[in-house]
Design a protein around this nucleic acid. Sequence first.
DNA 1: AAAATCAAGTAAACTGAATTCATTAACAAC
DNA 2: GTTGTTAATGAATTCAGTTTACTTGATTTT
Lengths: 242, 242
Amino acid sequence: MAKNASRKSASRLSIDDRTADILNAARQVISEKGYEKILLADIARQAGIVEGTIYRYFQNKRDLLVKVAELWFGEQLSADSHLDGISGTQNKLRHVAWRTLSIIKREPVLSRFMLMELRPDPNYRSTPFFELNRHFTRETLQICKDAIATGEFHADVSPALMRDMLHGCIEHRTWAFLRGEGDFSPDEVAEGIATVVYRGMLAHPVSNQPAAALETLVARLEKVAERLEQKPPQVGRNNQLR
Amino acid sequence: MAKNASRKSASRLSIDDRTADILNAARQVISEKGYEKILLADIARQAGIVEGTIYRYFQNKRDLLVKVAELWFGEQLSADSHLDGISGTQNKLRHVAWRTLSIIKREPVLSRFMLMELRPDPNYRSTPFFELNRHFTRETLQICKDAIATGEFHADVSPALMRDMLHGCIEHRTWAFLRGEGDFSPDEVAEGIATVVYRGMLAHPVSNQPAAALETLVARLEKVAERLEQKPPQVGRNNQLR
DNA sequence: AAAATCAAGTAAACTGAATTCATTAACAAC
DNA sequence: GTTGTTAATGAATTCAGTTTACTTGATTTT
């Protein structure tokens, strides 16, 4: 009601510019405050506007934060996201795991934000993280189904379970990492996951021990044969194989 | 200041009784409202007291909720919690997975509450879920280490990773379940997890189909046998291979 | 048994954050 | 310039959780 000669107004921007400003401000606040409380007041200040203005551009706080995550995560999906160039079941599994793990390693703040702030939300299903997860998850499922189709994998374990193992492991590892309980190397973890899952799913695992045992056995046999050839008859009790 | 002839007061109870009242009320509210917003006002009403009174018995809302979870989860840890009676690595793994999965299946509200409300909290580390998780996790780690020590498991994959796979898979499965994306059977899932992890970790997997390497060896053996057959017999019974 | 003490319980105030909305000011078109 | 439109404001509202000062009944002391 007062006349407010002193009232300052931010310059008028296009919808897109202002939207971008707010998104950037939000992202910056998230980066700085980590997974601590994110205040609209902080975001508004950072964007050089007032809290109420945010509601012109976003339905509510959650809507804004979801959009931030969407954008941010989108940037992380680089060219190495698709599997097209990769052959071999184990290689594919490794790549899928590695891809997610590297994003997490590269952008811990984003990951923490999505996992801890966005995910526990009641209507999490409309979250970018959710969609992305579904996509990755479908991809992994397909790898497994393909391998079963060719007979490479056992059909006695459900593909969905294998997928849950792979992605569940990644997620579990991520929580620990985000909680500050130890670092991890995307390469190593991806290698480990792919190895165990692959071996565990194989229809006809290669056993190197029985082979090794046989190897010795054969060698011994061959020696016996040689001896037999050298000294014709004369076989005594010494020739016992064991 | 007013005389308050009309002021109603809850009957005075012992500390323990009142505490129990509040805990029960909280638990009931959680059960009813599911993972929706849990209001202190609701809990107070349910307990027949006023919001402020809660702060006489609990430091704050989170403290109360954590205690509820502690109590509730404690009830679920039945006798089958320990592994003592179980032998065999795969059986142990299956049991560990099954135990958690059954609790989740039996108490979805509690699980959802712990996973979605308590876990994403900044100071989650003081949560009963956290401690419990650590305990289960250590147990699984030990199973793996033992199996490596006896030579049953490969040493080329870290035990911690195997543990993460097992528990991560359970957790991933749980999230899906709690989100209403399909039911699951503790028996089946536990069996699947144990199978894949066990097979995947085995140092000397059992091959049910002769590997190519074996075939060559067999061929060599046959040659030896042939040579032996060529050389006049003479060989005594001692030369039996077994 | 009266007085003093104590602690359970209450009601209201406080706090801090999201959200709403009537008002104002900047810009564009005429 | 006048006017219409709409971005931006900031004060008001709402809604939880939390704190506070007060009331009151029970218990202990004398």
